[in-house]
């Protein structure tokens, strides 16, 4: 081998090594173009009224039953948090079993630290905040999936393909809201689907139907006459952890600054 051949071959090999395996999948520009432009007529969004929530936990119970989440495990697709803020500015948060059985005692469950009792006269404010998947427009959980098992539907709901999920839990780590969990029965990632089977046939989610106080509502952002859309567009609503850039689509009325 002379010097010229050696250099030629080296360049070929280096160029070849530079092509990663994924580049061998041909992406047709037409396919990519098709993904732009034609907007879905539906974009699901959720509205939570924290003022109306009384912490009964009927939503959590209904969600677990509707979506066949093992009742006795601590995993749940939606949960209710209680915030107790003292006059001295301390904030205590609890959500025993995700509030599956509601809140029935003033003692605040602090996990390993046991229960904390805050005297009534020390409480500045105390309220409940329901939480569920924010169905973000920029879902961090989807980006990290190595196998294409989690994705966003055209109408904005993030779902998990249980047949493709390998249970690596990257998405559980990536979600800034902690809404994902690991389903012990399927051994896959578990998350709120906005009750996709219900909303896609004109029903409301199980949690919305179970809430006696109208604290939870679901609507279509692309429909300007939808009452939920009207509230989101013209009402004073907040979202959780806006600074993460995930563009969450669960909007909160009367969101307090203590709520993270």
């Amino acid at each position: 081998m002379n010097r010229r051949d050696f250099l030629k071959n080296s360049i070929t090999v280096i160029a070849g090594l530079a092509v990663p395996l994924s580049a061998l999948e041909l992406i047709s520009p037409r396919k990519l173009l098709a993904t732009k432009g034609d907007e879905s007529p539906v974009r699901w969004a959720f509205l939570v009224d924290t003022q109306a929530c009384v912490g009964c936990g009927f939503c959590v119970k209904a969600c677990k039953t509707e979506n066949e989440i093992p009742h006795e495990t601590n995993i749940t697709r939606t949960w209710v948090e209680r915030y107790v803020v003292t006059r001295k500015g301390k904030t205590y948060v609890d959500s025993p079993r995700g509030a599956r059985d509601g809140f029935t005692t003033d003692r605040i469950d602090q996990g390993e630290e046991g229960f904390r009792e805050v005297k009534a006269e020390e409480i500045e404010k105390a309220f409940f905040v329901p939480k569920l998947c924010n169905q973000c427009d920029n879902p961090a959980c989807v980006q990290v999936c190595p196998v294409g098992a989690t994705y966003q539907t055209p109408d904005g709901v993030v779902l998990v393909d249980r047949k493709h999920c390998i249970g690596c839990a990257y998405c559980i780590m990536a979600c800034p809201y902690g809404v994902r969990s690991f389903n012990p029965a399927y051994k896959t990632a578990e998350k709120c689907t906005f009750c996709y089977h219900r909303i896609s046939q004109g029903m409301k989610t199980a949690c919305v139907d179970a809430c006696p106080f109208g604290a939870r509502k679901i609507g279509n952002l692309r429909d300007p006459d939808d009452p939920v859309t009207k509230t989101i567009m013209s009402g004073r609503v907040g979202v959780l952890k806006e600074q993460y850039g995930t563009k969450p689509q669960v909007y909160y009325l009367a969101l307090s600054r203590e709520v993270k």
């Binding site: 992406i27 396919k31 990519l32 993904t35 732009k36 034609d38 879905s40 920029n138 879902p139 989807v142 980006q143 294409g148 098992a149 989690t150 994705y151 966003q152 539907t153 055209p154 779902l159 393909d161 249980r162 047949k163 493709h164 689907t193 996709y196 089977h197």
Partner: peptide
């Protein structure tokens, strides 16, 4: 790659019907 593009829409389309 489906409606939501390469970053968010890379999935098995049939799974939507399963849900």
């Amino acid at each position: 790659i489906h409606e939501r593009g390469y970053m968010y829409g890379w999935h098995r389309k049939g799974n939507e019907a399963e849900w």
